[in-house]
């Protein structure tokens, strides 16, 4: 007798607990959805929605870089190479500034080490490539004298975040997305 009672009690519990759960699900039919239709339909480019500190792809402003090499020394996985040489007159030349973004683990130690703010995280993250070697970014086109450490108040103007990496990784960020913000809302400074 008690087995039968327990059997029907279990059915009762099942029906009520299911109805309880379904009432939660049904209530969501009436609420505003929380998902966004990335990447096809976003109110703004997603890069702009990210917080200030967001650690995206690294970029180097060679005009600020003093070629001190602290970033390369701090990097735990050696994904940065900085090289210097001498020109004909014996002056110091910055000859190489390469970052292998395929290896980078986005820890931000290089950014903390950089004394002039030349290396920094952009908020770009969509650097998808068909070949991993293509994520090796060479930031220096030709050898140039390294920048002097700026005096207080005389720092060169900062380039807009993401503009450098966008020009260095062409194709990775194209095509421009259909954003609700209109043509002006096209992401960053893409060429």
């Amino acid at each position: 007798m008690s087995a039968a009672r327990e059997y029907f009690a279990a059915i009762r519990r099942a029906v009520f607990s299911l109805a309880d759960g379904l009432s939660v699900t049904v209530s969501y039919l009436l609420r505003r959805p929380v998902t966004i239709q990335y990447p096809d339909r976003t109110a703004q480019p997603v890069q702009r929605l990210l917080p200030e500190r967001s650690r995206g792809l690294l970029e180097v402003d060679v005009e600020r870089c003093t070629a001190c090499g602290l970033c390369a020394k701090t990097c735990p996985i050696d994904c940065i190479v900085v090289e210097t040489g001498k020109d004909a007159a014996g002056a110091r030349l910055h000859t190489r500034m390469d970052v292998d973004l395929g290896r980078c683990m986005f820890c931000g130690l290089c950014v903390e080490a950089c004394p002039t703010g030349a290396i920094r995280h952009s908020r770009e993250f969509e650097g998808g490539m068909a070949r991993v070697e293509n994520l090796l970014v060479r930031f220096l086109d030709a050898p140039r004298p390294p920048a002097k450490p700026p005096k207080k108040g005389e720092e060169p103007p900062e380039k807009p975040a993401g503009s450098i990496i966008r020009s260095r990784l062409p194709g990775a960020f194209a095509p421009a997305r259909r954003c609700a913000g209109g043509p002006d809302a096209k992401p960053g400074g893409a060429a």
């Binding site: 030709a142 050898p143 062409p170």
Partner: peptide, 25 residues
């Protein structure tokens, strides 16, 4: 893994980077 950084810089002049150059396999 192959270490592209181990190769020396490609001399002076613009260096090819990006998905189209060198051409994709």
């Amino acid at each position: 893994r192959p270490a592209p950084l181990a190769e020396p810089a490609a001399g002076t002049g613009p260096t090819n980077t990006g998905p189209k150059n060198p051409p994709e396999a």
